[in-house]
Nucleic acid binder design. Structure first.
Lengths: 300, 300
DNA sequence: GCGTCATGCTAAATCGTTTTATCTAGTGTT
DNA sequence: AACACTAGATAAAACGATTTAGCATGACGC
């Protein structure tokens, strides 16, 4: 900045005023042009760290993600919305995918303008996620309604074993319970699906023995659904006639299974936008996530 | 820091010396203890931004990823290795998943100690990735050797349509060509696999018409392999007898397909460690990635 | 009693910005 | 001629740390 000042024959103060377009300072158009030109010629790039020191925080929003998070499904849309909305307000998204430790050291290191911590998804309800976690869970209604609409009366919910998703698991289950009673589906049965085929087969067999009236399973997500499909094939159960399966948070891979997986697609982008606005302390009125919709394929 | 200085009755300079364990300064043990205690009592946390301003760069390493990057497969291991190695040297990994734009604004904003740009995977060869991209490509040898070892003599390579992976696509193809001649597999045929089932079916049909001698397909990655499997099922071709399929960069989902997908698992963690050391300008001698190995399931 | 040296500590400059307060000319006004 | 006012620009003080140079003090040698 000093170089720019020197080159245009003014003080650093003036350069700052010009470059930031400060309005309550009077700068002659001639000077303004000279400074702009000099900045361009010298390829001046403001030093973000110095700016952050002076201003108290950098133009960065930090997102903490659990280690296991995959880019697929709605997370991708969430990130896109978040990033775009931040960009529109001159901010940048930086992601920290940490194995359990808190974000505190990173926050101390970069002094971000805002923090969205989804890494604690299973610990506490983040109030800054733009309604993502809750929205995700709430869309269970859409999933179950599709089953109810297609004639099912007794339904099970398949949940993953992964301890990393305990929080979301619980939220999903809570919303699912409410939805089930609202839809007249009776009490929900639950199955826990482990990470291997043999275990999944055993779990599904047990479910069918214990709850023979169940005609459809709502999966926690598409990954769980894919495992279910594999287990049912192994057991010789036809889908959807023997047992219907509906996924959640459409991963896209479901189009390539036999039968193709019916799933629920979520408007995560709006949640991302909302999260961005919350992080920047802006009003969130005009970004309302639209309802989720069912991607009907063959499995339900 | 001023508060700590005040509380322990010394100057800020002394506090800095004590807290950073500066060796070429003589500080009496008594003073040292007093300062440490005060810092602890006041819950002093160094201000990373100020430190970065003074030192010229923050203790952060920035990783740029292409927008489409999924957490699954070897990328997860790569991230883990990277993060762990950085942590061991007092640094932190921050990820920017940007849609095409460069990392320059982020670099200007945080002044990271190092930058690893994998988002340009398809533009230029990053020299800072710890050999990841090249290693990935080089492991094509392992993939093709498995096919050669199981008796195949005419092999095709299936590549994705996605423009985001052009660079890696080319690298893979180059290494595959070399490997093929080295293994006596003759000239490689290639198929491009689009993102939908119908297109994939068409592509596979065309391949079988144009190159009827091909008995096995090496896929760019597991996602492509999964699509291949679906298309072959659709066409009524048995796997592996009608046509063998081997994936790459084992995603784990391959265990749940019929037939289960044989794939190649890569030691990405070491590459991550190497990348970290390169970013921090340390020697990389003691972190050599181990060879990839084949996860033999049923498809090849 | 005076220089020399080691010890333990501190004042001040620095990193690159923003912002507040002030300063200098020129222009009217009375 | 004295005064007020405006336009245009700037000096200097922050932000919170690190680092360089230097300041007291007491011990030691002669």
């Amino acid at each position: 900045m000093r170089d720019v000042a020197q080159a245009s024959g003014v003080s650093a103060t003036t350069v700052s005023f010009v470059l930031n377009g400060v309005t309550d300072q009077r700068i002659s158009p001639a000077t303004r042009d000279r400074v702009m030109q000099a900045a361009r010629d010298l390829g001046y790039v403001p030093h973000g760290v110095a700016k952050a020191l002076r201003e108290g925080s950098s133009r960065i929003v930090l997102l903490g993600l659990p280690p296991g998070a995959r880019g697929g499904g709605s997370l991708g849309g969430y990130l896109r919305g978040l990033d775009e909305e931040l960009a529109q307000h001159g901010h940048m998204l930086l992601v920290r995918q940490s194995a359990g430790e808190s974000l505190a050291p990173v926050v101390a290191a970069v002094s971000p303008r805002g923090v969205i911590d989804l890494s604690g998804l299973y610990q506490s309800e983040p109030a800054t996620d733009g309604g993502w976690v809750n929205g995700l869970a709430a869309h269970t209604m859409v999933q179950l309604r599709h089953l109810a609409d297609t004639g099912h009366r007794s339904v099970a919910m398949a949940l993953p074993d992964d301890p990393g998703w305990v929080r979301l698991r619980e939220a999903r289950l809570r919303y699912a319970g409410e939805a089930a009673t609202r839809l007249g589906l009776g009490r929900l049965t639950t199955v826990t699906i482990p990470d291997d085929l043999a275990g999944t087969v055993a779990a599904v067999r047990e479910l069918r023995d214990a709850a023979p009236t169940v005609t459809a399973v709502a999966a926690f997500d598409d990954r769980v659904a894919l495992r279910l499909l594999a287990a049912l094939r192994e057991l010789g159960v036809t889908v959807p006639d023997g047992l219907a399966v509906i996924g959640f948070d459409d991963l896209g891979d479901g189009a390539f299974t036999v039968p193709a997986l019916t799933s629920v697609r979520i408007d995560a982008e709006s949640s991302g936008r909302r999260a961005a606005r919350i992080a920047l302390d802006l009003d969130t009125e005009d970004v309302a996530p639209s309802a989720a919709d069912v991607v009907v394929r063959e499995s339900a």
